[in-house]
């Protein structure tokens, strides 16, 4: 369940916080505006975007891209709609993206497999793609791959660090992701500017 502060609009998400709203002490106040518990009202449950109850399937032979790639394609178009203030279209694109996320092919949940993909992207995937972009003078594609390659290096670094240090690595710290380029940062506060794409700290998402 989610509860909204009727003064400032702060949303308390039980799932993300890990503590039921009803278990909060009476002294608890809104972290944003200090309004008391009593100012919070339950958020009407929104219709779940995904369609988990219904059987879903994906016929991969019909499409040029895999379901996972189509998920990114459509969530990107949702963001493209948001930027143009087309909220209704953004919601519809997100619904399509959610379907493709749901039907994307199963992968082996193995962090060494993750590392091997990451290494492949750093050694071959991104350099090859950058060479093609440069050959055609496509600076947009070159820019996306330049950012992507840097992000890939940090992904590899944090996975390797986790594999050597285990849970201690993340015991008392937050994990942040730059909402523009995907840069991953481990620390209590996000960096003042994103080291990869240079956006300010408020563009970072805290992972919960």
């Amino acid at each position: 369940m989610r509860y909204i502060c009727q003064v400032c609009g702060y949303v308390y998400d039980e799932e993300a916080e890990g503590v039921l709203f009803s278990d909060l002490p009476q002294s608890w106040t809104c972290p944003m505006c200090k309004a008391p518990l009593s100012m919070f009202a339950p958020v009407e449950t929104e219709e779940k975007a995904t369609i988990q109850e219904e059987p879903v399937s994906f016929d991969g032979d019909m499409q040029k891209l895999s379901a996972g790639a189509l998920a990114a394609l459509f969530s990107n178009l949702a963001r493209g709609s948001e930027k143009q203030y087309m909220e209704k279209e953004a919601g519809l694109f997100r619904k399509i993206a959610d379907y493709f996320t749901l039907v994307s092919a199963n992968e082996n949940p193995d962090s060494s497999e993750l590392l091997s993909i990451s290494n492949g992207n750093i050694e071959k995937g991104y350099p090859d793609a950058k060479a093609v972009a440069a050959k055609h003078g496509d600076r947009g594609a070159l820019r996306a791959c330049t950012w992507g390659e840097k992000v890939e290096r940090i992904v590899k670094a944090v996975v390797e660090k986790y594999l050597s240090e285990g849970e201690d690595f993340l015991a008392d710290t937050e994990v942040w992701v730059c909402s523009i380029c995907g840069f991953v940062y481990v620390g209590n506060e996000p960096p003042a500017i994103c080291p990869v794409c240079k956006v300010p700290d408020w563009k970072f998402e805290r992972i919960v």
Binding site: S75, G140, A141, A144, G148, V158, V159, C181, G182
Partner: peptide, 21 residues
């Protein structure tokens, strides 16, 4: 938490690159 961050990061990178396709 780390894997949720990487899941999000991978999606953002893929979105950025598919834009350029």
């Amino acid at each position: 938490k780390l894997m949720k961050a990487i899941e999000r990061s991978a999606r953002l990178s893929a979105e950025d690159v598919i834009r350029e396709a």
